[in-house]
């Protein structure tokens, strides 16, 4: 089996977001990381390969991005991916990214494709589903677990009100959420050393029209001041919640 993990690089989740003139993200001082969901997907893919070396022959990571995203890609290789593909373009919007990925994946065979449920930047949670439709593949969303049992791929997904276990035929796209792996893998020295020698293929982007574009950013309105109470006047808070806010 061959696994593909789609990765994007996003500002570190603790980053304070600023914009340059409301039109674009102010990239100064931002530390870029692998999108947390993508990192967990990759971690799970590596765990599966370690547990089933006979079944999983290769893990590829793919990214749509400029050379600026190469440190992120190299980190994925250091973690344990075998090779990488970078589609050489700014990731303009979700459909654009999905269509670029589809172009590359079409010509290669992957059995399981992982994408993150969400991205910590544009919070689209959209690339995986779009990619599946463009490739006419099965997609399973909100995947919180994946295992290989008796040669079958068993996927757990969250549904409204619970979880389901599914036996899914490959090839398919898993849109992954929290729970797939506990912590992202920390790259080992050996992995870091080998990352530079692993193949990183750069492909030219296809010509794709954007379906959406960001016109302008806004910052949220600052919240009004917090009204503070103490251990001694909790009763006043309850009063306010009951009479003014009418919440209880």
């Amino acid at each position: 089996m061959k696994i593909l993990v789609c990765i994007s690089d996003v500002p570190d989740t603790t980053t304070k977001i600023k914009f340059a003139g409301n039109k674009e993200l102010d990239k100064a001082g931002i530390q870029w990381i692998i999108n947390p969901w993508d990192e967990l997907s990759l971690t799970r893919a590596i765990e599966l390969k370690e547990a089933h070396p006979d079944k999983i022959e290769n893990i590829t990571v793919i990214n749509v991005g400029t050379t600026a995203s190469e440190p992120t890609i190299r980190k994925a290789l250091a973690m344990g991916a075998d090779n990488a593909i970078r589609v050489d373009s700014e990731p303009k919007e979700a459909y654009f990214v999905a269509a670029q990925l589809a172009e590359v994946i079409k010509s290669k065979q992957f059995d399981i494709v992982f994408t993150g449920l969400d991205s910590a930047d544009y919070n689209g949670s959209t690339v995986g589903g779009m990619l599946a439709e463009l490739l006419d593949m099965t997609s399973v969303s909100a995947v919180s677990g994946i295992n290989i049992e008796d040669g079958k791929v068993i996927v757990s997904r969250e549904i409204d009100g619970g979880t389901q276990k599914l036996d899914v035929q490959t090839p398919f796209i898993a849109v992954v959420q929290k729970g797939i792996a506990i912590d992202p893998r920390i790259p080992a020295m050996r992995g870091i050393m080998m990352a530079r020698t692993k193949p990183l293929e750069v492909v030219a982007p296809a010509n794709i029209d954007n379906l959406t574009e960001i016109v302008e950013y806004e910052m949220p309105q600052p919240k009004g001041k917090c009204r503070k109470f103490t251990e001694e006047n909790v009763n006043e808070l309850v009063d306010v919640l009951h009479k003014e806010a009418k919440l209880i």
Binding site: A120, Y122, N123, T212, I214, E216, E218, P220
Partner: peptide, 14 residues
Amino acid sequence: KVFTGKAFANVKIN
């Protein structure tokens, strides 16, 4: 909402 609620984006659909 973008950046997990840290900001908003106004998005145009073409």
